[in-house]
Design a protein around this nucleic acid. Sequence first.
RNA 1: CGGGGUGUGGCGCAGUCUGGUUAGCGCGCCUCGUUCGGGACGAGGAGGACGAAGGUUCGAAUCCUUUCACCCCGACCA
Length: 570
Amino acid sequence: MRFSRLLIPTSKEVPADAVLPSHIYLLRAGFIRSVGSGLYNFLPLGKIVLDKVRAIVKEELDKAGCQEVELSFVTPASLWRDSGRFDKYGKELLRFEDRKGNEFVLGPTHEEMMVELVKQSVRSYKQLPLNLYQIKTKFRDEIRPRFGLMRGREFLMKDGYSFHRDQEDMKREFLNMQETYSRIFERLGLDFRIVEADSGAIGGSGSKEFMVLADSGEDTLVVCEECDYGANIEAAVRMPAKSDAQEPERGLEARFHTPGVETMEELSDFFHIDPFFMVKTVARKALYDGGEEKIVLFAIRGSDELQDTKACNAVDANELVEPSADELESVGLVPGYMGPFELPEGVRCVLDNELAQASGMVCGANMKDYHIVNVDMSRYDGEFGDLVAVKEGDRCRRCGGRLRYTRGIEVGHIFQLGTRYSEALGAVFLDENGKSRPFEMGTYGIGISRLLAAIIEQNHDDKGCIWTKASAPFAVEIIVSNIGDEKQMQVAEKLYEELRDMGVEVLFDDRKERFGFKMNDFELIGIPYAVIIGKKLSEGSVELVKRRGLERESVALDEIVALLKERIGL
RNA sequence: CGGGGUGUGGCGCAGUCUGGUUAGCGCGCCUCGUUCGGGACGAGGAGGACGAAGGUUCGAAUCCUUUCACCCCGACCA
């Protein structure tokens, strides 16, 4: 391709609203253009990369036995009502009516549609298993789109769904997808990690996320320094915490007058004990379907923090929000003195698993100005759950290694869905005994457009993009230093044609621009290699520049083709 | 949704508080010339009626009202 014929509007100006390198460079280098909040146009370069990523995904999936389909983007709302997600999915679902007043949604994901499709055409266990996917634009009316392609409202996603006769086969396919996804991200040249995840609104159990490691990632990951354990903070577990702090003196359980002592810190000072031996009782307002609200308590060690997603799951709520002091008082709770024992009528409380055997603890008495000391938590007879946020320095449950935080960009997520959707939508098949059973399902997603951002987040320098080999829009760029120099142009044209004939994806910068201008564009766009045809031509040589590291080497003109062949791996 | 902010040529901004010439600057764009290995220089030129609607006024980018869009900070997700 000739640069002079390609629409690549590069720019020096940094858009004011772009903060992430991927956002800035993709805009500046002319890959994408913003059209509205969370909406982007893909220009020729962006489209080339998008198609490359898409092709790799498709290739690996097809090799793994998946089949591509394409479902209609506009989905009848009734399907979403049947699965119960019409209300639950919330405002993110873009809803609208056609001229006849029929309700539709713009698909943000396609479990319903896919189940419907399979339900209509699969009757027998003999037709299973099946793994169907599509690579298609999705629309989610995100509350706050940001970071360019990272979190748009319209985005390209690969969504796949598998159907099985039993759980065992579903788990087999889950593993198959885990391996396939790994191959995809490896081919793309990404440094990623597979972590355990919370299943969120999609539902199901046993989900894993593929995280591209980058400081700008939106997710906090907990990883082990010794083994390969990794988990999203929302799902991370640890060895039960221990403390070196001195244990408080044991005595009889008693109510203790503690006027004005309302925070963990004050309590710690008051009793001269470590927060490890205190119970922190956190109140949240849990929101349920149909606008139902309930105040719930979560009790954890004073040295821990509540993990909101875990807490939300523990009480099966749609969402947790901070309650006001008034709301707490209205159900009989006393802010500053809440505890898991002697609860007001009707207040639900979940205790963290790690507190089950704790003794000699201090907790609120649910009475103004009083705490209880020397509490033996094993007498608690309510609910337990995993509630705490794993901290850096905690110990790995697998190997005892030190856990630390890192940041990641979620580019893939695989779920073991089970029968949640097949049951809700009445999607069944006949097993070998002639018995009707709902499909066991798995669901698998890859954020294709987000991958472009993730690749750049992980591969850039202060000059611009550095595309990985598999994702680069072109393998090599030919830069003519001075197109007024006939000799240079002649050599360049010849090289360009030769490479093209060999099937190399080559970009030929034949623009009437100065050398520095072209170099800057090359660095901004991030093509892996450039051949500079310029002043050294008089000595019979050209220069090869590697974008990563910007190392240059002088190469004899008649050796450049062979060298390129070697470097770009033809 | 709550809090904060911004809308002025293609892009980035100034002007708005303290209404008053033809609305200004940088980048980009077009033409000519010089230059030609790190976003060059000179000369000339095209392009906006100030997010939208309404109002106040002799007069509004500037004041008032309404509205829309976009962005930043918090809860969702590939």
